[in-house]
Write a protein that binds this DNA or RNA. Structure first.
Length: 420
RNA sequence: GUGGGUGUAGCUCAGUUGGUUAGAGCGCUGGAUUGUGGAUCCGGAGGUCGCGGGUUCGAAACCCGUCACUCACCCCA
């Protein structure tokens, strides 16, 4: 038996309605906040991701699905959505159009990791990118959309954590201070963090190992060595969040795994998801467009994981089954069977959801199927009815039955079904 | 990449210190009821016990290997 690939899941019909609900809400709120959908390819040249995400990040170092095209070009299945969106923005010279421009996207992403609860090799993200506004209120607007979407979906136990990464110059000023401190604590740190002192000292602050936590509790903070413009900017972001009533929690350890973030960075976590507790995350990335050879363009965005949202979605929000507006056509007997096929077609073309089972040859078998499909109505048509020129409409809940003339069948049936 | 747990019917799971032909519930299917569903009763189908090797008179069970799934580390959505 050929099986699916590790970490790649089928979405069976039982699950697609809840996904569609999430997608519809995402598109609705994005549109309401002024974002427009963009669809970009799921694979790009490898260098796009290497340059944008950062060559020394885990994603680029060991998690990308990279392969050679027939001409030898190195291609990569996208591990996230921002790089492709920015590439499209630059390639189509959107910067020449009036700013700001706000985009959203929805689709599969690929990372070669060991699967676990809430983590897959093909997973799906909904994300937004807001280009052109170097204004704290643009950060607030983006966070507001994220928060509204998750709130509207009634996800439980959410926390918005937020941090200020400052400008590049702030991090450059902070780095030697932090490294000096970490060197003193080196014996307390885990092997991973000892290595990170060189490669990415900021990430040590985000380590989950308790010993590392304790060792860095008293570490000098980035905020401590941050210059004026960045602190003012961040306080305005917080001010904006307060103004529109979005609760947040400062987390100075919050360091995102992608190199392109600056200033505001945020993450929405939950306690109801197991170890993978991030539902969505994002931040500001003012340098990225320029890094990818576009014009200097400030930008901010976020992405949420659809699988993780789906796992948290309360049962009460999942759409009810569609059976109650469905008519089951129970046609049986030599001549009625063919007439039933025609009625089925007429109903469908008139916009009525109609089903049947062509294998069923008896009324009993038909009714059993109607019941299984949880249809509210069954249209009974045997040779007896055909001779009388009528059909029986049976309400499956009340067992009420009425005769309907075949000549005006669809018209007389429509109001009953649609108002039920 | 590292570690733990679990692999028995479509699904959820029993299966005694190793002992005859591997079980249950649900689901599926047929009948009781040849023109009226759900409930009930009766019957039926469905298994390479993940796979390969080993120990043994005898293995679903014990040992080794392997694969898959899963949770966690790492990292992230």
């Amino acid at each position: 038996m050929i099986k699916g690939i590790k970490g790649v899941k089928d979405l069976l019909p039982e699950e697609t309605p809840r996904w569609r609900l999430i997608e519809e809400k995402a598109r609705f709120w994005a549109s309401t906040f002024g974002f427009h959908e963009i669809r970009v390819p799921i694979f790009e040249v490898t260098t796009l991701f290497a340059r944008s995400i950062g060559a020394s990040t885990d994603i680029v170092e060991k998690e990308m699905y990279t392969f050679q095209d027939r001409d030898g070009t190195s291609l990569t299945l996208r591990p996230e959505g921002t790089a492709g969106t920015v590439r499209a923005y630059i390639e189509h010279n959107r910067a020449a159009d009036p700013l700001p421009q706000k985009y959203c996207y929805l689709g599969p992403m690929f990372r070669h990791e060991r699967p676990q609860a809430g983590r897959l090799r093909q997973f799906h993200q909904f994300g937004v990118e807001s280009f052109g506004m170097a204004d704290p209120r643009a950060d607030v607007e983006t966070i507001a959309l994220l928060w509204q979407l998750l709130s509207d979906l009634r996800l439980p136990a959410l926390t918005l954590e937020i941090n200020n990464l400052g400008y590049t110059s702030d991090r450059e000023a902070y780095r030697p201070v932090l490294v000096a401190y970490l060197r003193q604590q080196e014996s307390q740190l885990c092997a991973n963090c000892v290595r990170r002192i060189e490669t990415n000292p900021l990430r040590v602050l985000d380590c989950k190992v308790p010993a590392c936590r304790a060792a860095t509790d008293a570490a000098p903070t980035l905020a401590g060595s941050m210059a004026e413009p960045a602190t003012t900017y961040f306080s305005k972001v917080l001010e904006g969040l307060q103004a529109i009533g979005i609760p947040y929690q400062l987390n100075h350890r919050l360091v995102r795994g992608l190199d392109y973030y600056c200033l505001t960075t945020f993450e929405v976590t939950t306690t109801s998801l197991g170890a993978q507790n991030a539902v969505g995350a994002g931040g500001r990335y003012d340098g990225l467009v320029e890094t990818l050879d576009g014009p200097k363009t400030p930008a901010v965005g976020f992405a949420v994981g659809i699988e993780r949202i789906s796992m948290m979605l309360p049962e009460s929000l999942t759409p009810p089954s569609v059976g109650d507006k469905t008519v089951y056509v129970a046609a049986f007997g030599e001549r009625a069977a063919l007439q039933g096929l025609k009625i089925l077609q007429d109903l469908r073309l008139a916009g009525v959801r109609a089903v049947t089972d062509f294998r069923s040859a008896t009324l009993k078998a038909h009714l059993r199927q109607a019941d299984r499909f949880t249809c509210r109505y069954t249209l009974i048509l045997g040779d007896d009815e055909l001779n009388k020129g009528s059909a029986i409409l049976r309400n499956m809940q009340t067992k009420d039955q009425v005769d309907l003339p075949l000549s005006t069948l669809v018209a007389s049936l429509l109001p009953q079904v649609l108002t039920s």
